[in-house]
């Protein structure tokens, strides 16, 4: 039995590839299919949501439960939370008393354990664990912006080959370094998608239609880290997708952009609200940029190392393993 820290390479050896970039492309595809959920996992998630949806309909017959976030766009890592929102006809389910009433109801029905009601936050939510599947659930109330964002991201995924693959790798990379949590200044899921979308839709070889991104995932991943780790002008540039495709905007031309204490900050215009900077919470940009630059160095050094190695030395090796540090369960 072969044991390895990089389970996605088992039975997927690409060490004989002539170009390291092609090897990396194939390894990215292998990793993405490795972390993609199985039919059983998808069913378990859908059943979990179904049970909670039924309970909500029973409790409030004018309300419905919708999913958004990574679950709704198929961009989730194994074990990630499910984000839901309750929308009602009267639009009155975001009161403190409603939050507590629903939490108690779910508890009594045996549908929720470890319940936390966070009523005072800017976005009030209930957090709990589904006792059958052990999946963590966040429920928010009466806010449609998450649903609109999910719809837009699904359109981007349709129009942008490679967006799903590179986003999942960057998500896993940031997750392994605890830089993907907005509450601690990291990059949120929507911001990550915007960075990848913008990178792909402005890449010289892609806008000129010279390459198929799916055939070039390896070099594109390295160049993603190159752009945001070394070259991007965070002090002066904002990203916007107002015209349907992403463009840069000098920060000084963004009226209503609330400058943070430091000009070294990420600014991404919310496609649904031109006054909102969706990455304003990512205050730890210094570490994020440093991590991206580190990923570029790790990946390019690995390419140089493997380029001079013999085919015998390359067998069973991983190009990506050290960068993404996947420590999930065996799948």
């Amino acid at each position: 039995l072969l044991t390895t820290d990089y389970p996605w390479i088992i039975n997927h050896d690409h060490s004989k590839q002539k170009e390291i970039a092609d090897w990396l492309t194939m390894e990215i595809r292998d990793f993405v299919s490795y972390i993609s959920p199985s039919k059983e996992e998808i069913k378990e998630r859908n059943d979990t949501i179904g049970r909670i949806r039924d309970a909500v309909n029973h409790f409030w017959n004018d309300a419905n439960l919708h999913v958004f976030g990574s679950y709704a766009t198929d961009l989730y890592l194994p074990g990630s939370d499910i984000d839901c929102v309750i929308i009602s006809e009267k639009g009155d389910k975001d009161s403190r008393s409603s939050l507590y009433a629903l939490a108690n109801f779910l508890k009594k029905r045996g549908l929720a354990t470890d319940i936390e009601v966070i009523a005072k936050a800017r976005v009030p939510i209930i957090k709990f664990i589904d006792p059958r599947s052990k999946i963590h659930i966040d429920v928010s109330f009466e806010r449609i912006n998450g649903l609109e964002a999910a719809k837009l991201i699904r359109e981007w995924l349709n129009d942008t080959p490679g967006l799903r693959e590179i986003t999942l790798i960057v998500k896993q990379f940031l997750h392994a370094r605890r830089l993907n949590n907005v509450h601690t200044g990291g990059l949120g899921g929507f911001s990550i998608i915007c960075l990848v979308f913008s990178f792909l839709q402005m890449h010289p070889r892609i806008i000129s239609n010279e390459i198929d991104p799916m055939e070039n995932l390896g070099v594109l991943l390295v160049e993603f880290f190159e752009l945001y780790g070394k070259n991007f002008g965070y002090d002066d540039i904002a990203i916007t997708t107002a015209n349907g495709y992403p463009i840069y905007l000098p920060k000084s031309d963004w009226k209503g952009l609330q400058q943070l204490r430091s000009s070294f900050s990420l600014a991404i215009q919310d496609p649904g609200d031109a006054t909102n900077n969706i990455s304003r919470g990512s205050f730890n940009l210094r570490d994020i940029k440093k991590a991206f630059a580190g990923a570029f160095d790790l990946l390019t050094n690995r390419c140089f190392e493997l380029d001079t190695a013999s085919f015998k030395e390359r067998i069973g090796k991983s190009v990506l393993g050290n960068v993404i540090k996947y420590r999930g369960k065996q799948r």
Binding site: M202, I207, S208, N209, G233, I237, Y245, D253
Partner: peptide, 21 residues
């Protein structure tokens, strides 16, 4: 066809359209 759409070229350094960073 392979052609370069000028309207998609933006500079990562100054944000202006028409040249690469």
């Amino acid at each position: 066809k392979q052609k370069l759409p000028i309207e998609r070229i933006y500079c990562y350094n100054c944000g202006v359209n028409g040249h690469f960073g």
